[in-house]
């Protein structure tokens, strides 16, 4: 019996050791990149990952997670880098930065558009340019999911700043009373669902109006037009057009000490919505995110070489051959 316990404890210690070793290795060697469910982040992660791996010889992994999970993991350090933090859509963002849970080290791009979009054919056929032009064509937008005699405006997930803003717009009786009499704002809790409604309508050239944002693949593949709002922007009143959101690069606390060189590279990371859109088209053509990232790196040396020192750039170039 005693012998058995001895054996058992040895096995346990062995397992515990193995786990400890495994845990340590992961924590020290692998950079975790957050990956949300939109494609532009997949692209940026591949570009970063490729440079980590071939420029700096660091291992990396992507962790698929929803935005709240990403934010929580950045706080705890389970995720190291978020290449696209839609700062306005994360309610706790400023507080988290002040508390020092994670750090904003660069702005990936801030020339994106958010708002209400319609397909191009709709604008051409019915001359709908502003949100108010929608009102006289409300019959086209009828839906069984909203009140009778009302059109549906597809919204993004509740809790996103843009969704709240649009909700404020439809609650603003004074300025948008006619609009909210004719239309109901209907938030959809998943961007996949939002995209299905859009693609489905676009393919059969039906009427669709709803929240969307650039840079995303629907804008690369379809002709979508942003509706204008003639009023001055005010978040609480819901007036005007949504100003571009800074999409930032954030790293978890302590990342700088662990990877000073990579920290340096990430602080220089900067693209634009147009660059990202083009990359998304490339990604769609090649049907492979990693191949698209490589192709992009080959063709855009002028953009990425200033982010890294010369020797790192050489390493990356060699790997691209």
């Amino acid at each position: 019996m005693k012998n058995f316990i001895k054996k058992l404890s040895i096995v346990f210690v062995g397992i515990a050791l193995a786990f400890t070793v495994a845990a340590c290795r992961e924590e020290e060697d692998v950079i975790s990149l957050a990956e949300g469910d939109w494609e532009s982040q997949v692209f940026h992660n591949r570009v970063m990952g490729f440079i980590f791996e071939h420029g700096y010889g660091a291992e990396w992994e992507d962790v698929q997670a929803d935005t709240p999970v990403v934010v929580q993991s950045l706080r705890t350090g389970d995720i190291d880098v978020n290449s696209e933090m839609w700062s306005d859509n994360v309610t706790s963002y400023q507080d988290d930065l002040e508390a020092g849970y994670y750090h904003e080290i660069a702005t990936n791009f801030d020339d994106n558009f958010q708002g209400l979009w319609i397909p191009g054919y709709l604008q051409d056929d019915y001359e709908i340019y502003t949100v108010f032009d929608l009102i006289e064509h409300k019959e086209m937008f009828y839906s069984t999911e909203v009140a009778d005699e009302k059109g549906i405006v597809h919204g993004g997930p509740s809790g996103w700043a843009a969704t709240n803003f649009l909700q404020n717009k439809f609650n603003n009786e004074e300025i948008y009373g006619d609009l909210s009499d004719a239309f109901e704002f209907y938030p959809l809790e998943s961007t996949a669902t939002l995209n299905v409604t859009l693609v489905d309508a676009y393919e059969s050239e039906e009427a669709w109006v709803g929240y969307h944002w650039t840079p995303t693949w629907p804008h690369a593949e379809m002709d979508l037009r942003l509706l204008e709002d003639p009023y001055e922007y005010d978040y609480d009143e819901g007036t005007g057009n949504i100003p571009p959101t800074p999409v930032t690069v954030v790293v978890t606390d302590g990342f700088e000490e662990r990877y000073p060189e990579i920290f340096e590279f990430l602080s220089n990371y900067e693209t634009s919505a147009d660059i990202t859109s083009e990359a998304l088209v490339l990604m769609d053509e090649l049907d492979d995110a990693m191949e698209a990232a490589k192709e992009w790196l080959r063709n855009n040396e002028d953009i990425w070489t200033p982010w890294v020192p010369e020797d790192v750039a050489d390493n990356v170039r060699d790997a691209l051959q």
């Binding site: 929803d66 935005t67 709240p68 934010v71 929580q72 309610t91 706790s92 999911e145 997930p157 509740s158 809790g159 996103w160 209907y186 959809l188 809790e189 998943s190 996949a192 669902t193």
Partner: peptide, 20 residues
């Protein structure tokens, strides 16, 4: 069901977890 546009208690769960 709330991820595909249904309302109800499920939507409240989704909204809450999205905002942590």
């Amino acid at each position: 069901a709330s991820m595909i546009g249904a309302r109800g208690i499920g939507q409240e769960v989704l909204i809450a977890i999205r905002q942590i």
